[in-house]
Design a protein around this nucleic acid. Structure first.
Lengths: 200, 200
DNA sequence: GTCTATAGATTGATAGAC
DNA sequence: GTCTATCAATCTATAGAC
């Protein structure tokens, strides 16, 4: 008797639709600009569904952060490990993070900054996003080539993430802000930072 | 007859009060979260003043961006040039940008990200912020030690700004995200990037 | 769990007195 | 130029039918 199944399936589908709608609409209009009604409508539901599933807009955001907790780290790390040599690794980083194909993930970083601002202002939510970045640094760090202890590699991963975030910010305003060559050279320099430091 | 003067002075004062209120309130609540009424009230005026001076909230934001056009570059550059050696320069950058005294400019970067998001979404406003970052890179670039052409030094300045922005993002969520030593080493590495590149 | 309907508060913007 | 008063639109959240 698959009665319960279909109920649960619909429930799960609504949940996914709401989360996906939140990703798109918040990237487009911002956290404050995306009303509960608009979020529900984008998911082909009504506002009641948002309250039933998440208790409100804030609950939806928390669930979104939770869902995405390690999506970032997993994706970046996979890309990074797939490449064979350093040049290729850097290239993949640069391509995928800062100049994504202008179709799917075009507004990805907008959502990232939107959630960052939200987390900075809400002490209850901040630990969630902090854990997300921490996980990204760790996962990313273990994929680094040099033999470093966990703390060092996470630090270097933090540097790479920082540079990519900051470069993307500038290039979204002006695609010619920083040349590709300089950016790639900088990524290489940061990757080689531990070796360089040892020589001193 | 100083009649006209006092009128103009009051007008100018209201304008400044509104701009200052916008800085504080938008950093605290965000662009969408700061209503026209709240902005006016924070400036000890009423909403009518906002419409009379700037035509609305968007006009106030544009004026704010215009006012701040080179405030960033001037400040950063002054700090940077005041220091005598490289170590001091890096230290001043790190201190002032990423770990400002938690009183005055504590919410500075929140406003920066808020305006960035706003500019990304409003094609009419984007060039304004793009020009601001461009000016910052140029002004900052001319203060760089190495002998580079304008394009190269602006690129390196873009790298430094990017790293500082990205590090501040992570450290605001978690003060221990990236260690001070690693961050400073990274800034040094980026500063020395041109020399390193020449050796290859 | 999802819907409709609605309450109650807040928003951006305008009109008119001063 | 600044204020008070106000309109129309929009928002969050809830109540109740199904």
């Amino acid at each position: 008797m698959p009665v319960g199944r279909t109920q649960d399936e619909r429930k799960a589908e609504t949940r996914q639709r709401l989360l996906q709608a939140a990703v798109e609409l918040i990237a487009e209009r911002g956290v404050a600009g995306a009303s509960v009604d608009a979020l529900a409508e984008a998911a082909d539901r009504t506002s009641g569904a948002v309250y039933a599933h998440f208790g409100g807009k804030e609950g939806l955001l928390v669930a979104l952060l939770d869902e995405w907790k390690d999506a970032l780290s997993v994706a970046v790390r996979a890309e990074f490990e797939a490449a064979s040599d350093e040049r290729e690794r850097i290239g993949s980083l640069w391509q995928n993070f800062v100049s994504p194909p202008p179709g799917t993930g075009d507004a990805w970083t907008l959502l990232e900054h939107e959630l960052w601002l939200y987390a900075c202002r809400n002490p209850e939510v901040r630990p969630l996003l902090a854990a997300r970045y921490d996980a990204a640094r760790r996962a990313f760090g273990t994929a680094l080539p040099a033999a470093l202890d966990a703390r060092e590699s996470a630090d270097v991963a933090g540097l790479l993430i920082a540079l990519l975030l900051g470069l993307e910010m500038q290039r979204r305003l002006d695609p010619d802000a920083v040349s590709d060559e300089t950016a790639i050279a900088a990524l290489q320099a940061l990757l080689r930072l531990p070796e360089t430091a040892e020589r001193v």
